[in-house]
Design a protein around this nucleic acid. Structure first.
Lengths: 108, 108
DNA sequence: TCGTCATATGATGATTTCGGCATATAAAAC
DNA sequence: GTTTTATATGCCGAAATCATCATATGACGA
């Protein structure tokens, strides 16, 4: 079993892609529908480059997609992955949310 | 929108729980059935305490469960969450796996 | 009770992550 | 062609992560 291969392990990268509060916040905003960068920045109160950096990741990794509309680039969720995924996450949190928030390893 | 609350955001912690190569490796081993710590260490070639640390997290956060059997503690997956979750992840990887591995943000 | 097997827990230093500052690039209007 | 609007990209320093070294705790048998 090759340990060094784990750092490029796609499931690992999948979870690392989502284990970031800025990216999760962006996903939350896009749940309400497609949005341009500027609007995401405003809604979240984040600097533009923070949002762009993270949209770059989200799009390249397939979590969101985008479409140029004039000067604006409108981003939207990849619902095929995100919708069922967040359903599972939400169900899990119903039972284990409190523990997740108090985990000594994650919150140390 | 409270930014400071994001660090204790349960979905974030859910993903952080899984965005770790040791913990994912353990999950991979447990897919083949319940196992004691020692056997997980052997299979993966990891030091015992590395495995214990991470099992602690996995169990507290609800991703695995355990049962004391004599001197051994047998760990098993929470299939209710992990099975459908990894299904979604695997499907996503079929399409976006290459990009995940080359993402400039995740792999910088 | 003591010794052995099995596992859990604490803390530190090394490595990884990530946003802000700075700047580049793209699209539209003039 | 230039200016304005909108967004993308690079890099550095600070913060977060995490395995190793060390040790503690638990279960069982003699």
């Amino acid at each position: 079993m090759m340990i060094s291969a784990y750092k490029t392990n796609p499931p690992l990268l999948f979870f690392k892609g989502l284990a970031n509060d800025t990216r999760l916040a962006i996903i939350q905003v896009l749940k309400n529908g497609p949005k341009p960068v500027g609007e995401i920045c405003e809604t979240l109160g984040f600097e533009q480059n923070r949002v762009s950096h993270n949209l770059r990741c989200l799009e390249f990794c397939g979590f969101v997609s985008s479409e140029r509309t004039g000067k604006k680039r409108i981003y939207s969720l990849n619902d095929e992955t995100i919708a069922p995924l967040m359903q599972i996450v939400d169900n899990h949190i119903k039972t284990y949310g409190q523990n997740l928030m108090q985990c000594k390893v994650l919150r140390r």
